[in-house]
Amino acid sequence: MHALVVVAHPRPASVTHAVAARIAEGVRDAGHSAELADLAAEGFDPRFTEHDVAVHRERRSPSADVRAEQARIDRADALALVYPVYWWSFPGLLKGWIDRVFSNGWAYDEVPGQPLAKKLQRLPVYLAAIGGADWRTYARHGYFGAMRTQIDHGIFDYCGAQVPRSELLLEPADGDWGENFGIARALGARIAREFSPTRQRPSASPEPLPTGAR
């Protein structure tokens, strides 16, 4: 199996990058392959442009950078997203990646008057969020539950993708991230262990509908 591990943090020396690396290690230690996609280093543009609106509304072909990301996901058997918690959600870079890449016609089909078609049912998505607050803060205000509603259900369930595991890794009081790094490596091993070869992979990217088609 092949896992795509997407990381969104501008500093390569960050804890977020260290967690992503250990998830990839866990996959590889189990005898499988993993690709690290560093959105900041690769210069992905998260801005949702007029062309992206046209992709959604008129089914124009996505731009080359979006098609490249979609192809990278199509090659993967599992997707892992690793990110710091900014304002109790994704950082803007990762949210913009979701906004642009998980487009109408590729991640789902939304046609007026027809049932929603969820197109990513083959793809398991694993989440690893790195937070700076303590568990008491997350529990008292319901932040983690709100994140799961917004992200696990609001984004991935809408596309049909299952989220087998959402990890929230919080800064230890003593500053020692060793235990959390172990959790990250175990998550990578879980991704490999839970891979099902019976999941149907897409045969090819669908051709976009003509401009204005519904």
Rank of each mutant, 00 (worst) to 15 (best):
A184G: 04
D38K: 10
A173R: 14
T149E: 11
S196W: 04
L36D: 01
A139G: 09
W88G: 02
E171L: 14
A107L: 13
H2D: 03
A68Q: 10
A71C: 10
G43C: 11
G131C: 02
G131E: 00
E171G: 05
V7S: 03
R47Q: 02
A24K: 08
G43S: 01
F144H: 05
D134G: 14
T211A: 15
D157S: 08
E58W: 13
V27A: 03
H9S: 12
G132Y: 07
H153N: 14
A80N: 01
A129C: 04
C159H: 12
F181S: 00
D134S: 12
D109V: 15
S89G: 15
R60I: 12
L39S: 00
V85E: 05
R11F: 10
R11S: 08
P206A: 08
L94R: 02
H153D: 15
V55T: 12
G92A: 15
A30D: 01
L81P: 05
S103K: 12
L93F: 08
E35F: 01
D176L: 05
I183K: 13
V5T: 01
P124S: 03
W106P: 11
I151D: 02
A204R: 15
R190V: 00
A117F: 03
E25Y: 13
P206W: 07
V19G: 01
R193G: 12
D65V: 05
V82L: 08
E179K: 11
G175I: 12
P46L: 10
R11K: 13
G145Q: 10
G188K: 04
R100V: 06
L81H: 00
H153Y: 12
P197M: 08
T211R: 15
M147T: 00
T149V: 09
A189N: 04
A41D: 02
S61P: 15
G26W: 05
D152H: 01
R148G: 06
G92M: 05
E69S: 14
L168M: 12
L168P: 06
D152T: 13
D52N: 15
S33C: 06
F44D: 00
R75I: 07
Q70L: 07
L81C: 02
Q200W: 10
Y158V: 07
D134R: 07
I130H: 00
E69I: 10
G26I: 10
S63Y: 04
G212P: 06
V163W: 06
K118T: 03
P197E: 05
H32G: 04
L127E: 06
L94H: 04
W106Y: 15
S196K: 14
E69A: 08
M147N: 05
W106H: 14
E167S: 05
W135A: 14
A54I: 09
S203Q: 14
P115H: 07
F156D: 00
R140H: 08
L116N: 03
P202D: 06
D109G: 13
R140I: 03
S61Q: 15
G160K: 07
A146L: 09
N180E: 11
S33R: 10
A21V: 04
L94E: 01
L93A: 00
I151A: 08
G212R: 00
V55I: 04
A21H: 05
I183N: 09
P164W: 08
F181C: 00
T137E: 14
R28T: 09
H153M: 13
P124Q: 10
D157T: 09
A117W: 11
P202S: 02
W177Y: 05
